[in-house]
Design a protein around this nucleic acid. Structure first.
Length: 306
DNA sequence: AAGTAGCACAACCGCCCGCTG
DNA sequence: GCAGCGGGCGGTTGTGCTACT
């Protein structure tokens, strides 16, 4: 036996709201408030709408101080930062952006921001869909917060998605001994595998960088080299082994991301397997601590953090 | 000018969770 | 403790607009 519907769908109006309906709803709420009961509100307000529809209309459009229109760069950064940390928790993200609604942000992410970030990639020749068995409710271990003021949006002509100066990007989030200066040049890096799956992760830090002797610069250069290498491979085509991103493996052999990158097909890994790999290398500071998975069409699958 | 594809965004759907009786 | 309900939320769909052919 299913749950009773919240309203009689046959007798409620659906679709776009008319200005008259908006006025009725606004007027009623201004006079009486929501009364804590959206289900009974439309009847009281003289609206032939479902209570949930009224609630949505009020929260997303009619409520005072709602802002619509262009998102600023700062807002972009905040959205990216929070998405990287907590995933698609739009209501939480919206709470950090006064005047923005979760629906707005969700739409913005899905239609613009994601493309803005991913538009830097060449088109994939193959178009078959490959879905990984990921479900967001399974992912409960979020990584350390990345402060939004430490994320820099990189122009879409670059293969780098974010640059962060955050010390919190350490793969060993439970290790507080990391020297901030050594962590100042962390780069998100991304690689396209021959099968079209994109792995996107935070670059790790060399253990030797824990001393602030300038080795972070070397680390930075190394990361840049990886990105550059990726660039070259994109232009030159895959390496002799038929895959992109092999230089990544050379630099970070033994890491879980390396193991994934070496594999011919990411889809051979399930969520638990990836978790095990991440867990097994949790003490390896070289390794990445996040992973963004895409299918061939670069539809985002999931951002994972160890 | 007509048809079509792509895009943006409002609105809906259905699941989950907490509250209440 | 449990069932039913409403609110909240994320995912998805529908629709109108614009750009392109």
């Amino acid at each position: 036996m299913g749950r009773a519907p919240c309203c009689d769908k046959a007798n409620v109006k659906r679709g776009p709201w008319s200005p008259e309906e908006d006025d009725k709803l606004k007027e009623y709420i201004h006079k009486n408030g929501t009364g804590g009961n959206w289900i009974s509100l439309p009847q009281k307000a003289g609206l032939k709408r479902c209570g949930k529809s009224c609630r949505l209309r009020w929260l997303n459009y009619l409520r005072p101080n709602i802002r619509h229109g262009e998102f600023s760069d700062d807002e972009d950064k905040i959205i990216c930062s929070l998405y990287a940390n907590i995933g698609s928790r739009w209501s939480i993200i919206a709470a950090q952006l006064p005047g923005r609604t979760d629906n707005d942000i969700k739409n913005y992410w899905n239609t613009k921001l994601k493309k803005k970030l991913m538009g830097l990639l060449p088109n994939s020749s193959s178009h078959h869909q490959r879905k990984l068995p990921f479900h967001h409710h399974q992912l409960t271990n979020y990584g350390p917060m990345i402060p939004s003021d430490q994320i820099t949006m990189i122009p879409s002509s670059s293969p780098t998605m974010f640059r962060s100066s955050s010390p919190s990007l350490s793969s060993s989030s439970n290790n507080n001994s990391f020297n901030a200066s050594a962590m100042q040049q962390q780069y998100y890096q991304q690689q396209v595998k021959e099968d079209g799956v994109l792995v996107f992760g935070t670059g790790g830090t060399e253990p030797s960088c824990s001393s602030s002797d300038g080795s972070s610069n070397n680390n930075n250069a190394e990361q840049l080299q990886i990105i550059s290498s990726f660039h070259d491979q994109q232009q030159q085509g895959p390496a002799a082994d038929g895959h992109y991103g092999t230089s990544f493996s050379n630099d970070q052999s033994g890491t879980w991301s390396d193991q994934i990158m070496k594999n011919n097909s990411l889809e051979e890994y399930g969520l638990e397997e990836i978790r095990q790999l991440m867990s097994a290398s949790s003490g390896n500071n070289n390794d990445t601590n996040s992973l963004l998975l895409f299918d061939d069409n670069r539809t985002e699958e999931r951002l994972m953090f160890y």
